[in-house]
Simulated scan of single mutants.
Amino acid sequence: MDISGNTIFIPGATSGIGLALAHALKERGNTVIVGGRRTELLERIAAEGLETVRIDTTDADSVQTAAKDVLARFPATNVLITMAGVMRVEDWHRPESFLESAEGIVTTNILGPIRLIAAFVEHFQTRPDATIMTVSSGLAFAPLKVTPSYNASKAAIHMLSESLRLQLADTSVKVVELEPPSVQTDLLPGQAENDHAMPLDEYVAEVMNIIETQPDAHEIQVERVKFLRYAEARGDYEQVVAALNASDPH
């Protein structure tokens, strides 16, 4: 993915990593369209100089409507970053305490990206250079015990990304996977103040550096996430999982 000169749609970028990344990409000479559900947040973001589109990735019709809007207003769109995602603490001892949460996570974190990719993939194949950037997590590779559905959803996104990269290799569409570690955002209550999490500005700066210096990278991995990403390959998976869960504040 080139660092500049793109038209980028980022659904789920009204806060956290998505919004910070949207601003950083705009500063590097890209047109950036932020998608989100809440009108008041979109109005504030528009006032900051970003383009906006209302979208609810849990609603298939909303995805189709938003995609048509984006492509009508910004036909040069060539990058999709499937940022929308949710993370919840769950207790799987009793189904009444986790089933609704798990279903919601699957809808947002797996069906959402699938719907988005389906809405843009044909258009992207008409562009000379296009990128689908999925968003998984370090927890796709080593589990945090209190977030089982989130871990599983991100593992699914990892394998989806690997598979799509193979299928789309005969097209102009690149598939890149963003793999964040724990970052100081509001993804979970208290995470923004968690000393174990990576500061947001440091994370986005390192991501931008990787995009600029490694434009052909298949996986965007800051140094901090490699502890989780390569645990199994290093042979210290059990120790990594133990350390991860020992530091969990929940």
Score class of each variant (00 low, 15 high):
A102G: 09
E27Y: 15
A102I: 02
L139N: 05
R37Y: 02
E48R: 09
I157S: 11
G104T: 13
S136G: 09
T52Y: 01
S62F: 11
R165S: 07
T57I: 15
D61S: 11
D69F: 04
T57G: 12
V121Y: 14
K154I: 10
A46C: 06
R28D: 14
M159E: 05
L71I: 14
L139M: 13
V86P: 13
L144P: 01
A84E: 03
N151S: 04
K68N: 07
R88N: 08
L41A: 10
I117R: 03
R94M: 12
N78V: 00
L41N: 10
E122P: 08
G138K: 02
V63W: 12
S163H: 09
N109H: 08
R115D: 11
G49V: 12
Q167C: 03
T107G: 13
A76L: 00
A47N: 12
D61A: 08
T82N: 04
K26M: 11
A155T: 08
T131E: 06
T134Y: 09
P75I: 06
V53C: 05
S136E: 08
A60C: 15
N151Y: 04
H123E: 15
E122K: 13
I157P: 12
T65K: 13
I105L: 11
K26F: 03
A60W: 11
A140Q: 00
T77K: 00
L166W: 05
V79K: 04
P95G: 15
V70F: 13
H93T: 07
S136P: 13
T108W: 06
T107H: 10
E103I: 04
M87I: 15
P128Q: 15
E162V: 02
L160V: 00
L139K: 06
V34M: 01
Q167Y: 06
M87V: 10
R165I: 14
A67F: 15
I157R: 10
